[in-house]
Design a protein around this nucleic acid. Structure first.
Lengths: 337, 337
DNA sequence: TTGAAAGCGCTAACAC
DNA sequence: GTGTTAGCGCTTTCAA
């Protein structure tokens, strides 16, 4: 593979001159530069990014730590959308992305900081990490520039992007209340997620606002899983048939709840209203189409990359980016009869 | 950031010894090794992969060239699934993945080979590239180890993974024929894809096998797009109401066809049978659930990584990997009335 | 405008 | 077992 040395030899100049010529420095004779450029093209020279990074101490690379990169993650297109957003922004800024490979088994061998330092990534975007992931503490402790999706971490070198989950869930509750519902249950995810807590807060606030009481037995955890939510909802709706609406913390769980209702012979939305959260692709394709709080995952990814690069450039920007959400009313919610 | 030099100084040995100790060579005194390892841990040393790669001429990195990494690609979870499969295999083999950023605008500035050589990736996996993409020729010409998904390229350094698309489509046709259909149309994708040609071949063969004639006017192109397919199908079914079944080259297009049928007041599957291809997540969630030819994208990604690493290790394995497909009979196909 | 030389952090002959 | 030395391909003082 051709190096600047080869070019230097062929052009009869020093490597210094070649380096300068190719990097667009002004103090190079026009003719020399031209000759060097020609030779470079001819011998198909491409700069060795490794060598350059080594000496410049900059890699133009950012790391991606993705927890949901598993077979299951395909159903909600969230991870994918975020990735696309990141990719879009980084592409424009000439940054490359490296996907860190972090199976749980591997986490024991290598710490987060090791992972980052080895590859000398300039910063990291973290997605889908749970509150109890050992890496999270490390992210806190290390001072590697980092942006998290939906996990609140703020520091000199870290920030996060999220949506207003409290408000998002309130929108869902309000909608249900407007439709006359009073016996509203909530299917939350699990406790290891920041967003779960926020969404629950939104539920409480929404109910409070409407003068409705929150019944503890009507709050369940579906582990963000369709199957689990279905199971739990079956139980819930059997025990408390007076429930007329269920707000869910994810679309997948909402799908599970709808299924449970069907199992019990309760038509959605006529005999049960259900709302989701996320607006995954499935939400609008399924029958009945899900009423849900839409999050723009692409924009979140895009914003995350933007924020990270700002941090890298030492810009003193706000460390948190809030992306808007929006209630999409479709066919799983209806007036209480 | 700590280097082996630092360790060497602290341990009072040479950098060579440190290097050897940390890399598990046998010719290091046990005590020396222990001391070195302790110091390394203490000062939080992590090896600089850049420096190592530079001298070893091996990066343990493979490049990913993904065309469908766009907002649209989220609907079919194909890209994501393949990525997951690749990630899974590479993780186990300690390879990292770098996502090449290739917006079309950027392709003009940087050639494929440049992209790869700059980052010194050991090999590349290419997904979603169209026949008319300028990069494809470059992939041919360069001798960078490469594995393509669904594009037949075979050489010393290149291979591909695909499914038997001819057979896959024949399965769909056979199924329809068994249900008594004779007036079968095909909604193909576009001409820039290898798989389109194969699937069309399968259609012809399937029809031939059943003693049915292929009518040219009944073959259309939906550009692998839901909307376009719907548009085209509307036209087709209006002009030729005698058509009782449509086989599609993708699920998304099948969805479009179903929609077109609905528009025309024709119930699927009662008054029109439709088959898809891919078995994307939507396929089984939509109502009616799509009868489709399932491809295991995860396995394809996994196999691609496996094949690429084999090529890298100079193994003289077969350059093509064929993954099985399977007809999933669901609710968009029914006996002709 | 150009070149010599040093050095980024690491590995690997080779010598001791 | 351990150290010396050279060198991977590049950028960057500093001097000419």
């Amino acid at each position: 593979m051709a190096t600047i040395k080869d070019i230097a030899k062929l052009a009869g100049v020093s490597v210094t001159t070649v380096s300068r010529a190719l990097n667009g420095y002004s103090d190079v004779n026009a003719k020399t530069r031209k000759r060097i450029e020609e030779i470079a093209k001819e011998i198909e020279y491409s700069p060795n990014a490794l060598a350059r990074s080594l000496v410049m101490n900059k890699t133009k690379t950012i790391g991606l730590l993705v927890s949901g990169l598993s077979r299951e993650g395909a159903k909600d297109n969230i991870v994918f959308d975020v990735l696309t957003g990141i990719n879009e922004y980084c592409g424009a800024e000439e940054y490359d992305l490296v996907l860190f490979n972090t199976t749980t088994s591997k986490q024991k061998e290598k710490t987060y900081a090791q992972l980052c330092r080895e590859r000398r990534v300039e910063g990291v975007i973290v997605q889908g990490i749970k509150n109890d992931d050992p890496y999270l503490q490390e992210i806190f402790d290390s001072n590697i520039p980092c942006v998290l999706i939906d996990v609140p971490v703020e520091s000199e070198t870290a920030g996060y992007v999220t949506t207003d989950n409290v408000d998002g869930l309130m929108k869902a509750v309000r909608h249900l209340v407007e439709l006359g519902h009073e016996n509203i249950a909530m299917m939350n995810g699990h406790d290891q997620a920041f967003v779960s807590k926020e969404r629950f807060k939104g539920f409480e606030l929404g109910m409070l606002e409407a003068g409705l009481s929150v019944r503890k037995e009507w709050i369940c955890n579906g582990e963000y899983s369709e199957r689990k939510a279905q199971e739990v909802a079956l139980q819930l709706l059997t025990t408390y048939p007076e429930i007329t609406a269920v707000v869910c913390a994810s679309d997948l769980m909402a799908l599970g709840v709808v299924r449970a209702a069907e199992e019990l012979g309760r038509k959605v939305p006529d005999q049960l209203s259900v709302t989701g959260y996320d607006d995954i692709t499935l939400a609008s394709y399924v029958t009945p189409a899900l009423t849900t709080v839409a999050q723009d995952w692409f924009r979140m990814g895009y914003a995350a990359a933007d924020l990270l690069l700002s941090i890298l450039q030492q810009k003193s920007v706000d460390r948190v980016r809030l992306i808007e959400n929006e209630l999409k009313i479709r066919n799983t919610t209806k007036e209480r009869v």
